[in-house]
Design a protein around this nucleic acid. Structure first.
Lengths: 213, 213
DNA sequence: GTCTATAAATGGATAGAC
DNA sequence: GTCTATCCATTTATAGAC
C-alpha cells in the first residue's frame, strides 16, 4: 500500500528538480505548483514563499553534506578510498547544484543562509586539512604547514566550483564522467607533494580514471 | 568645455555599477533609468532591453580581457612581473564581477554569450599554459606535460572563481587586498614545482605579499 | 533624442469557500 | 489541506507627443 507522499515533501522535491534544471531564478512558485498540479494557494499554505522553499532545501543539503564531511575517514589513505570519498562529496553538491549556480543571488535574498554557507566552506577546508594531515603523518605526502593550509583552501574551492566550471566550458551531460574528472583534478593537486617519483603516482591516477570511464 | 557624455554610454556605465553592487537580477531597467534620471522609454530607445545592455557590457569586457590575456608577456619570468600580470587579470574580472556572480542565470537568458564565454575560459587556460611553458623552458619550474596542463586548468578556474570565493567566505571589503591574496594563492600553486628548495620560493612570496598589504 | 502615458505580462501573496 | 478568485507590485515594452 504505497504510502501517500506528503504535499510538503513533493513541493520540495519538485522545486529542487526544477531549480537544478532551469536555474532558481527562472522558476516561479506558480510554475512549481503547475508542475505538481496543485494550486498556488495550496503551495502558499505549506511555504510562505520561494525563499521558504529555498531555506528548507538548504536545511536538507546542510544536513547531508555535514554528515558526509564529518564522517571520520577510516584508513582512507589509499587512492581508491580517497577517490570514492571525494566522489561522494561532489555527488552531494551536484544534487543541490542550483544553489551553487546562483550563490550571490540566493544569498542576497536569503541572508540567513550566508553565515551557514560560510560555515560549510570552512568545514570543507577543515576536512581537507585533516585528510592532508593524515596523509602527511603516514608519509604519503610531504609538505610544510603553510603549504598544507594553502592546499586545503584550494581543495575547498575546487569542490565548490568544479561543477560550475565544466558547465561553463561546454555542457558535459554525463554527470558521472564529469565528477570523475573533478576527482582526478583534485588528486592531481596532491601529486607534486608525493615524495620520490611523483610520476608513478600520476600514472596510478591516469590508470584509475581510465578504469572509471 | 566638458564634452557631453552620450546617453548610451551613461546607461552602460550606470548599469555596470548597479549590477556589480546589487547583482544583475536585482536591478531592473526602470531602476537604471531612475538613477540616471531619464525615462524608461528613453532607455528603451537605446537598448531593446536588459539583455541588450548585458550583451553590450560583455562586448566591452571581452575586448578588454582579450587584450590583457593576449598581451605577450615579455620576460615575465620574475615573481614581480607575474604578480603584476595576474593582478591585472583579476582587476579586469573584478570590474565586471556582476557577470561572474550570476553566470548560470545570465547565460540562460543570453545564450549568445555562452560560446563566447567558453572561448574566454579557453583563452585563460592557453595563456596560463604558455606562461608555464616559458617558466619550464627557463628552468624556473620542472613538471611533466600532463602536470602543466592540469595546472593551467586549475589556474584558469582560480582566476574565474577566486573573487566569488572570498565573497562567500565573508565579505572582504578592500578589493586591492583581496586581489593580492588571490595572486598569492595563484603563485602558491606553482611553488611545489619549483626545483630545489621550494621553501625559499615560498618565503619570497610571503615577503612579497607582506609588502603589498 | 527624449519625454509621458500606458499597455501587457508576470510573479508574489491573501481571503474565504469547501 | 486544498481550491478558486482576486489583488497588488513589479517589470518589460510600446505608442505617440515634443
Amino acid at each position: 500500500m504505497a504510502r501517500k507522499v506528503k504535499t510538503r515533501d513533493r513541493i520540495l522535491q519538485t522545486a529542487l528538480a526544477l531549480f537544478n534544471e532551469e536555474g532558481e531564478a527562472e522558476v516561479s512558485t506558480v510554475e512549481i505548483a503547475g508542475v505538481l498540479e496543485i494550486s498556488p494557494g495550496n503551495l502558499y499554505y505549506h511555504f510562505k514563499g520561494k525563499e521558504a522553499i529555498i531555506e528548507a532545501l538548504f536545511d536538507d543539503f546542510e544536513e547531508e553534506i555535514r554528515q558526509v564531511l564529518s564522517a571520520p575517514i577510516k584508513r582512507a589513505l589509499s587512492i581508491e578510498d580517497n577517490w570514492i570519498y571525494i566522489y561522494i562529496v561532489f555527488e552531494e553538491i551536484n544534487d543541490f547544484r542550483f544553489f551553487y549556480n546562483n550563490l550571490a543571488g540566493i544569498l542576497e535574498r536569503c541572508p540567513d543562509l550566508r553565515p551557514r554557507f560560510a560555515r560549510l566552506l570552512r568545514l570543507k577546508e577543515e576536512t581537507a586539512a585533516s585528510i592532508l594531515a593524515a596523509l602527511e603523518r603516514e608519509g604519503v605526502i610531504a609538505c610544510s604547514r603553510a603549504e598544507r593550509e594553502a592546499l586545503a583552501a584550494r581543495f575547498a574551492a575546487h569542490l565548490t566550483f568544479w561543477l560550475q566550471y565544466v558547465g561553463l566550458a561546454g555542457a558535459e551531460s554525463d554527470s558521472r564522467r564529469t565528477i570523475n574528472k573533478g576527482v582526478y583534478a583534485a588528486m592531481m593537486m596532491i601529486a607534486p607533494y608525493v615524495p620520490g617519483d611523483r610520476a608513478a603516482f600520476t600514472e596510478l591516477l591516469d590508470g584509475y580514471i581510465a578504469s572509471q570511464k
